[in-house]
Design a protein around this nucleic acid. Structure first.
Lengths: 261, 261
DNA sequence: CTCAGGATTCCCGCTCAATGGTAATCCTCC
DNA sequence: GGAGGATTACCATTGAGCGGGAATCCTGAG
């Protein structure tokens, strides 16, 4: 693959370097970066210098480095995420104004929900969704929606794996889960009382793209005790339709409802 | 620098590739990518395959490639932008709720304003700010705020350059601009009637970091005819203080007001 | 002031991964 | 069926990347 003894390409190392940063470690010394990535010292320095030269990384006064503005800019500008986000945000603001708690937008990626946007104060309630954060598919309302509308083959392979049971209400039994997914497709939304964090409840609905496939899941998280949960659904659905339309969706063609089996 | 005949490092080519994508071209064929970047065909294919292997790029059914979810995720997760954004968003929502038009958050990068967040419907008014978009410093309210609070040395070098005059109200004469910047520092905000786009007006205020330096500019864009502009300022200022505090700012220490000369 | 431990930069010979031309193959519309 | 473009396959060449080791620079503790 590469000149390296370990046999990785530069791209691989680039990924290692970028991955070393997360919300908890947004900046660090080059030496530490070397330690976290496991790359040889000299190599780390050389690579970091290349990245600094391109402004993909930036050095701060203290000497620590962090992910560069340029990198964020390039990726954000060119990524399709921005389009989805732009389309969704106005509607999310509306939902947020009405529902008051926390509104998120998530997509299916690598067998997990990846949250790409989130509105709402975390002060009010425990809520573990973070932007650019991930959660398991079968344990979140967003995940269930995404899974429910995924291709049958994908569902099969996903359900074949052992699933972690987070609370008593987490469905892990394939057949039960499958039935639940069918229900979600029919009702058009998923509701999950306190799956990962028992105190909170999620409700999610699908967002469609032009080809009628599901692009994302729009969801709100509310405190569990708030038992007017069903009242939230119409608001969410209306917003999701708005987002879908902004993405070029032309309304559901009768009889074209996606079915997986 | 590299094995390449043209003498670029792989990192440089990586940047070229990512830069080939923007909001108008979020996906394209590999051949086109090669054309846009000017890289040799074979090289492009090899590099793209490496990137696909790491999921930094993704191939879509049609054969086109686009920037990968993984790339967006890694960069977003590790970038400091997220922290700033998270701190600012709740307050921006509040501003947006009151002011109704468009609320943006911009930072100073490479002698321009880089907008990192934006709320508000573009339906209501012409507004050219885009997320991950750039505008010149001296022609936007956000830019003027950022420039006004930048180190003196930076201001000097910036003012030494020739500045484009976008409309009659754009200040380009260094001495006049300097006086205007002083005014902005004193008043605590910048107001720009229709600088780039004549129909709209911007108001911006600074957001401070823990060390009392200016981290970003919070601004609203309103239609020009709306002449209650000054009324917006207090709202903006209050929000900016909130954001600053969320970033760890401990209130302005009397007498520590930044002065540039 | 000195000293220790860590961060950072220099140095340098080895080597194989990256390079990029050419040519073959695969698509996909007319 | 065939023209034009996209994509893959092949391959000889070589210098960019590699990484161990040592020197130097920092910084805070004693």
């Amino acid at each position: 693959m590469a000149n390296s003894a370990s046999g990785e390409s530069i791209i691989g190392r680039f990924v290692k370097i970028v991955s070393a940063f997360d919300d908890r470690h947004t900046s660090m010394t080059v030496a530490e970066l070397g330690r976290r990535t496991g790359l040889p010292v000299t190599t780390t320095y050389r690579l970091v210098n290349d990245l600094l030269a391109e402004r993909l990384l930036e050095r701060e006064p203290g000497g620590d480095v962090h992910i560069g503005t340029r990198m964020w800019e390039l990726v954000s500008r060119g990524s399709k995420m921005l389009g989805l986000r732009e389309a969704a945000l106005p509607f999310m603001e509306d939902v947020q104004a009405v529902v008051q708690h926390s509104t998120t937008l998530g997509i299916l990626d690598s067998d997990e929900v990846l949250y790409i946007e989130r509105l709402g104060s975390d002060k009010t309630i425990v809520d573990i969704t973070k932007i650019a954060g991930r959660l398991p598919l079968h344990a979140t309302s967003s995940g269930l929606v995404l899974l429910a509308h995924a291709p049958a083959a994908y569902q099969d392979s996903f359900l074949a794996r052992p699933l972690t049971k987070f609370t008593e209400t987490t469905l892990t039994e394939p057949s039960l889960l499958r039935r639940h997914l069918a229900e979600i497709r029919q009702r058009g939304f998923a509701a999950m009382p306190g799956v990962i964090v028992p105190e909170s409840s999620g409700i999610a609905v699908p967002v469609f793209g032009p080809d009628n496939s599901v692009r994302a899941a729009l969801s709100v998280v509310v405190p569990r005790n708030e038992e007017n949960t069903p009242a939230r659904v119409p608001v969410l659905m209306a917003a999701a339709r708005g987002i879908s339309r902004a993405l070029g969706w032309r309304g559901e063609l009768k009889g074209t409802l996606r079915q997986s089996h």
